[in-house]
Design a binder for these strands. Structure first.
Lengths: 341, 341
DNA sequence: TTGAAAGCGCTAACAT
DNA sequence: ATGTTAGCGCTTTCAA
């Protein structure tokens, strides 16, 4: 493998020293005369020189790279957060790449190794693991996306899931539903579940409804989970007497459920009401269009970027938590029912 | 900034030389006695050492990192290709990160700079730019995803768009459609258009149908394009006499068109037939579900990875092109018509 | 099997 | 404003 040209050749051709070349190519802004600068630039062009960022990073301890780790790159929810963060972070001079963990701790661990090995200046992530200590020990500024109540000393940005859940539940209540079920996950992202579940339990208690464990479905927040939800629902037998609405933990789940229900001859928005969470693009396209609680993806991504930049500037600053409110998006998956309960 | 522990401290603690430590931590497999190895491992654990991959890469010219560049990370079509490539590439010991160009040449150029500056061992991309020469001059093995007829000397994997287009057209013909229109883009991705358009022209000629330029719509392959298609279609006035089906350049376009048509009171699958291309998840969720030509995303991503690995092994090997056939997925957006033409 | 020495290409600190 | 000198932390000869 032929080695590329280095600043030495550039320096020689321009008739200056390595340092001068370095001053020209680095943004640090060391003082260089206009004359020297132009000769260096000319030499760079002539030789087709490109700086070796490995060497630069090794010396300067700055890579100007930020890693955004998401659990599912194919889910628009995550990819749009990544994109929003990218905008802000690039504007600050960094290059952004995204790592896809696929909800897999092993894969996530690989990315952590990358971070530990000095390749990135910062990290924005929604982690699969619950080991906050390990994340803090990564040795670079980190911002968590999502709600991690237990992550006290680490910058976090996310949606106020409890309030968002409540928003959905209150809307179902207001439209006359009295037997409201819940579909959410206990596996993988325990932290989210507990918040949705807790909000649900509180709500049910507050309204004075007798809880029905049979209409609390624990399924994955995925298409497969949506199909399983429907399977379990229909297996209830007399389900129409027990459930008139279900709050689904996310849109992917809800959308898959809508489709599976249609296949089973159940019409969502009439026979049963469904509310999702996230407001991914497909929520607007499906029929019936999904009523859901929108999470402000751009705001979340942007805020995560902002927090990261602040921490990179001042590693000692106190940690912050930003929780954005969700927004109810009313579409066609919820029926209007009479109810005088 | 306190500097992390280096192999020097590890060597000292283990009572061996730097070289021995290096042999242990690098996979190169230099010979080390079992005794030395275990002492080094113990020292590594005790000190919490992690190797600085910048330094390693600088010296060895290997980063074990591969960049996958996609034009739109929020489009499941691309993210699934990236994911498939990731599986294969990680299995070969590389770490994968993805870069999102957002169809923006400037952003793409930034990623190219990253590549040129020695950060990656290889690159899988769907490029925005048409400058193949520049891509070849990047200095690392590259595999292109998508069809680039002009890219002679570069590994490419994609779908056989001509045949895929034909598949859609033949199906429309077989279901009795005789006034088949085309909606595809002339801007941005000229290379794709020409293939779809050429296949369309050939097909029309072959069937002996008089071409009607008024039903060839040039719109972007985006949601906006779908809405514009419908606008232009309805502006035709007597459109029902001129068009009974439209082949859309991709699913995003087709899905947006379905929605816009519904808003205009036109029922797809009855008043007009639509076929898409790609088979993104939303194609199955929309109502009516979209009949489309599926591109084998996993195969494409996997083959791209395979090609890249082969080229990294042997940079001198002749370049290959893999074109996968599309698969017709019949759903509900095409009407059955009587026709004896 | 191991160690010593020489860099990889760059930036930082200190000259001048 | 510029050059000189040391490294950054690792891998790679080359010897032993």
């Amino acid at each position: 493998m032929k080695t590329k040209t280095s600043i030495i050749e550039v320096a020689r051709l321009a008739g200056v020293s390595k340092s001068t070349v370095s001053r020209v190519i680095s943004d640090a802004g060391g003082s260089v005369s206009a004359d020297a600068e132009s000769r260096v630039q000319a030499a760079i062009r002539e030789l087709g020189y490109t700086r070796n960022s490995l060497a630069a990073g090794l010396r300067s301890q700055k890579t100007w790279m930020v890693l955004v780790m998401v659990p599912d790159i194919a889910n628009p929810f995550w990819s749009e957060i990544a994109r929003a963060a990218q905008d802000r972070l690039e504007a600050a001079g960094n290059s952004i790449v995204v790592g896809n963990t696929d909800w897999d701790e092993k894969r996530e661990a690989r990315y952590f190794d990358l971070v530990r090995s000095c390749r990135f200046d910062g990290l924005v992530l929604n982690s699969v693991t619950d080991d906050i200590k390990m994340i803090q020990d990564l040795g670079v500024p980190v911002v968590l996306v999502g709600e991690r109540a237990e992550a006290q000393d680490i910058d976090t940005v996310g949606t106020d899931t409890s309030t968002a859940t409540r928003l959905a539940l209150e809307y179902l209540w207001a439209t006359g539903h009295r037997r409201i079920g819940l579909a959410t996950s206990e596996h993988g992202s325990e932290r989210f579940l507990s918040l949705r579940r807790r909000a649900y339990d509180d709500f049910i208690a507050e309204k004075g409804v007798a809880p029905d464990p049979g209409i609390i479905f624990s399924v994955k927040l995925s298409e497969e989970g949506g199909r399983e939800l429907v399977r379990e629902l229909l297996a209830l037998g007399n389900w129409q007497d027990r459930v008139d609405a279900i709050f689904c933990g996310n849109d992917i789940l809800a959308i898959a459920a809508i489709n599976a229900l249609r296949d089973a001859g159940v019409e969502v928005g009439r026979d049963i009401s469904l509310v999702g969470m996230d407001d991914i693009p497909a929520a607007a396209h499906i029929f019936p269009a999904l009523t859901t609680v929108r999470k402000p993806r751009s705001l979340i991504g942007g805020a995560a970027a902002e927090l990261l930049l602040a921490r990179m500037r001042d590693p000692g600053r106190p940690s912050e938590k930003h929780l954005f409110p969700g927004e109810l998006i009313i579409r066609g998956s919820v029926a209007e029912r009479q109810n005088n309960t």
